[in-house]
């Protein structure tokens, strides 16, 4: 971990802090110049949805060449072949996935079947670990597959982030925890948030010299989390406020989460 950041930061903090400590939020609007600098043409956003729980894959995407076997094995759940949405590739979608089928026909949807790993041990934790780390089945990797990519792209993170070039979080996890997929060798690249409208400023202050050793590393981590939460929350809150509701969204938790993603993306011109 670098120490110079904190020498630099402490000077800034001592100037800025009493304001925050008196309970006054820094106005987000003064950041609008930053927003003007965004280039919507260059924005690429990857959205990953991790669904937790069970999914009947053979009923979601029915292998038509196995239809008779499936019918014999589970006559009580299988749907009549005529009701299925045939893709033309010996596979058919469940009828409730008609919209997905159109996306598939337009080559906007890809499907990877039969994912798993050899010699399954039925431990959910192990499956999740492999899912997030993309490690071979017989190895344990402490980093996430996206975290490794981000480590390559941003080797100094979290020091000096956010920066002028990267004012936004590199990844956002909708929920209260950072995503293990975004775990890098040093830190986690994702910012956890449940609601971009609900972010406020955290007080910090009195930041000074960081001692060496593990205590110093932990202290540095807490200070960085405060700083990043504040720095990113200004931009995210601003984006969320500027967005207009143009679509009516349903109200399950999952759909609300999708809405939050959509609202943040729209500002970037990505959807």
């Amino acid at each position: 971990m670098k120490r110079r950041k904190f020498i630099k930061n402490s000077a800034i903090s001592f100037l800025g802090l009493p304001v925050a400590l008196n309970g006054m939020n820094i106005s987000p609007i003064r950041q609008s110049a930053l927003l003007d600098a965004l280039n919507p043409e260059s924005d690429r956003v990857l959205v990953l949805i991790q669904m937790i729980g069970g999914n009947d894959g053979l009923n979601m995407l029915v292998p038509l060449d196995q239809y008779d076997n499936l019918y014999n094995a589970r006559p009580n759940v299988i749907l009549p072949q005529s009701s299925l949405e045939n893709t033309g590739f010996n596979l058919a979608f469940h009828p409730s996935m008609m919209d997905m089928r159109s996306m598939f026909d337009d080559a906007k949807l890809k499907i990877v079947q039969n994912v798993g790993y050899p010699d399954q041990n039925r431990s959910h934790f192990r499956s999740t670990d492999i899912w997030t780390s993309a490690s071979p089945a017989n190895e344990d990797w402490p980093t996430g597959w996206l975290g490794r990519q981000l480590t390559d792209d941003h080797p100094t993170f979290p020091n000096d982030y956010p920066s002028e070039d990267f004012p936004d979080p590199l990844a956002i996890a909708i929920g209260s925890r950072v995503s293990m997929t975004c775990q890098g060798a040093v830190g986690n690249f994702s910012l956890a948030m449940t609601n971009p409208f609900g972010l406020g400023q955290l007080a910090s202050g009195g930041d000074d010299f960081i001692p060496d050793g593990w205590y110093g590393d932990q202290l540095e981590y807490v200070r960085l989390t405060v700083e990043q939460t504040n720095a990113y929350s200004e931009r995210i809150t601003l984006k969320a406020i500027l967005d207009q509701y143009t679509t009516s969204y349903p109200v399950t938790t999952f759909e609300i989460q999708l809405k939050l993603i959509a609202l943040m993306l729209r500002r970037h011109g990505a959807v």
């Binding site: 925890r177 956890a192 939460t229």
Partner: peptide, 25 residues
Amino acid sequence: SVAGWQAYYQAPGFSRLWLSAVTMP
């Protein structure tokens, strides 16, 4: 989950995992 709170088993972050932009406020 049955494994308990992540902060007590999830390497490498462990107790750091208690802190996030949600839990800090």
